[in-house]
Design a binder for these strands. Structure first.
Lengths: 356, 356
DNA sequence: GTGAAAGCGCTAACAT
DNA sequence: ATGTTAGCGCTTTCAC
């Protein structure tokens, strides 16, 4: 707190010797204090080269002393760049608006780091799409952000496509299809599902279950991969849609596993979160993992190694993906073109499956 | 896509009959189209009452048709309110900038919901404080936000205090001390620690360990609560600082539990995340929970019920806390005064402790 | 109920 | 290297 000294004793940088505390609210105020023009202050504070080093220092010191920061709204309006990236989490097919998978929050954390690193601020928006493209265009169309990152495509693939047609700086985490307009970064989910199922089958499973809602395209692809592998191996497969609302998940899993005519001996969960719930339910029912039932998760969250038994899972490269998303978005903002990126999934074998 | 029709055939709302697609970028553009003034368009789009209902409808329809949204930066600059709340996660005492406890991400999720509900956008910032108050003043002082929410106080209590002296619309999750300047919402951590320890002791534990860094004030208070209870009961207590970087956590826990001269039979973890790691390590070492060692977590995250055994923990009311934070912040923005809120902790007994 | 005019606080040409 | 000028696109008195 440098204010409070009433009798300016020489070094308080206040040219009018009244000693009254001067409120510096605008560039113009500071300019007056420094005896220069607003333009110069603007340049000095922005660290521009065309300002005399000495005056720059002086102005910066003055600004610091008075705790002055230029108003960002004015700056952004004038310069037509906001330095802000909109990060949107579409909660398309989830009744409860809460939580969403820890996967998304982990991705968000990495995106936040990466954006900060690149000098961007982050405007977060969790939206429940309403059937129109409004939820997205609210971000893209209002001059608030320089670009948009989507944390998942949810069940909004087509809407994202249509918006991306006219709004370039947009990158989504999710799936990529041939001729897709919008740039996506994600995992090869079909391959991931396939690998998971093959691993289960190699461990002796014959009656598989896939647990998870397939409304989101990513999850659906995982299911397809599982289905393909099951068909090829002549294994049976049931699909059990599980809502993410954790309160109900346990009941749903129990009901589902009870109903099935053949005893399920291999589970592919659509995510680690679901897998953890499955593990918990199986334990409750006294079914041993991996001896009676094998379980594979998807994501490889840090928590996956802490379950009992530790979770075999399909790893997604979240940190790497976040890096790629930001890098691609930057490229798009600068007018370049970018490809989508589908990363290969990787099987992480732990204790919830029989290794060979 | 309503554009694309080249020969305006009557109903395309385009008064100049060239049929050329008109780009509507500003209020003025739309005003011209509608044959009114910019001011009227502004009022119509804002749904103000003093506009003729009919013209309002017409203008809104026109705006929709052309996908026009008023530029937020201009609007915010002019109206001197941004409709944005800054949410800051200070990563004070964590080497790795990543992750932070899932607790914080859960809180973030609830805050996001709550802010959205109240019509605010959310500007997220994860910062690593540098010893100055810069990380905070960057948010408070640049006209970007109407208020600031802090997700945790980290080890920045004093800095928050000093900023709060002159910046009113600020609410933090965290601890409250007598005569504290800034508004805080949180749990009574001392009581929480005490309850946890007493429960352990009631279950027969005599040699306690507290696991967690106490640099953050909240955690330190939990430790104090544990210490008080241990002293009163004549139980021993060791403090084992554990960094949150999950890679190292396991090693640290193992090293710590190995070194201690007496066998620890009761663990209070500073968070559920730590508790989960502790459970995992104990399993690795073949020590049974709760028979040989009892474990209590802190937070009651959704995941706490999924561990094996399910985690006994001290519940923090995250959703309720998020609601309170937003409500108090709103009050402060509107110039009212608000008290801090310390919520009572609640013991949730599950399987990781002996219930009497 | 609507139009005209005056900025919000800053930046970027264009002068000098 | 610095000052001057002209807006960025919107909201909001103030007239009518």
């Amino acid at each position: 707190m440098t204010s409070g000294i009433e009798n300016g004793n020489g070094n308080n940088g206040d040219p009018d010797s009244t000693g009254a505390p001067v409120k510096v609210r605008t560039l113009a105020d500071l300019a007056r204090l420094a005896g220069v023009s607003a333009g110069t202050v603007s340049r000095a504070l922005a660290g521009k080269s065309l300002v005399n080093a000495e005056t720059r220092e002086r102005i910066q010191a003055l600004a610091r002393e008075h705790g002055f920061r230029p108003n960002q709204m004015a700056s952004k309006l004038r310069s037509r760049r906001t330095g802000v990236i909109g990060v949107v989490i579409p909660l398309g097919h989830e009744k409860r608006q809460q939580i969403s998978d820890p996967f998304f929050l982990t991705l968000l954390g990495h995106l936040a780091d990466e954006l900060t690193e690149h000098g961007y601020d982050l405007m977060l928006s969790r939206v429940i799409p309403d059937g129109t493209s409004d939820w997205l265009e609210r971000m893209t169309g209002s001059g608030m952000v320089d670009g948009v990152l989507l944390i998942g495509q949810s069940d909004q693939f087509d809407i994202i496509e249509s918006v991306a047609e006219s709004y370039r700086p947009l990158v989504a985490w999710g799936s990529w299809r041939d001729n897709q307009v919008h740039c996506a970064v994600g995992t090869d989910n079909i391959a991931g599902g396939r690998i998971a199922a093959e691993h289960l089958i190699a461990g002796g499973a014959r009656n598989l279950a896939f647990m998870g809602e397939t409304q989101g395209i990513e999850i659906d692809e995982r299911y397809q991969g599982v289905a393909a592998a099951a068909t090829e191996a002549g294994a049976s497969l049931v699909h059990i849609p599980i809502s993410l609302a954790s309160a109900e998940m346990g009941e749903q899993i129990k009901a589902a596993t009870a109903n099935s005519d053949r005893a399920i001996d291999g589970v592919v969960a659509a995510s680690d979160l679901i897998a953890m719930n499955v593990l918990h339910c199986l334990r409750d029912k006294g079914r041993s993992v991996p001896d009676e039932v094998q379980v594979v998760g998807f994501d490889d969250l840090p928590l996956a190694s802490l379950t009992m038994p530790p979770l075999t899972t399909i790893r997604q490269e979240i940190a790497e993906g976040a890096k790629a998303m930001v890098q691609k978005l930057k490229a798009k903002i600068e007018g370049e073109d970018t490809d989508s990126l589908q990363m290969p999934p990787r099987l992480i074998v732990r204790g919830s499956t029989r290794s060979n």
